[in-house]
Amino acid sequence: MSEFFEQTIQPHFNFWIYVILMMLGLWAVIAKKNMIKKLIGLSIFQTAIILFYVSIGVKEDATIPILDHHGPEHHEVVHENGEHIEDAETSAHPEEVHEKKGDHSHGDDHGHDDHATDPDTMANPLPHVLMLTAIVVGVATLGVALAICQMLFKEFGTLEEDEILAELKDSASDD
């Protein structure tokens, strides 16, 4: 059991979490009768995928990916900015910021070349960017869905699917 845990679950625990969340969401969409609950399930489903994406962007000991376009003349300013970030985030991620600081000095040594930024020290930004979009899409979907639910409620006076179906069946002749 523990072997299974160590070999299969632990190294990919992020996958397991997203799979479980996704299945929870899917189950809610399929099994729940209430429309709002279905939508909650749908949101969980989408969020699970977002988690999956975010988790694949993670790197051990990596920092937030902000490129410093600092030329020599602006060096001081940028450095101050860097300090500023450090202040703001010290409490949350002391280690990461420390790494970032190290990265700065590293960059300085090599003549402020953009490409000198070592990608290994930064989290992959692309999945996050993608997920920002996906979140927006998800929110939009949810908004449309809720609006349609409102219409449903106005027309049927209920959001329980079995009641809606029963009413549709009753009114099949005159609809």
């Binding site: 989408q46 869905a145 349609i148 027309e155 049927f156 549709l168």
Partner: peptide, 16 residues
């Protein structure tokens, strides 16, 4: 009314 109901079904299926 059927249209509304169909739309919400479509939303669920389509999003999945």
């Amino acid at each position: 009314r059927r249209g509304t109901h169909a739309a919400i079904n479509y939303v669920l299926m389509g999003t999945i």
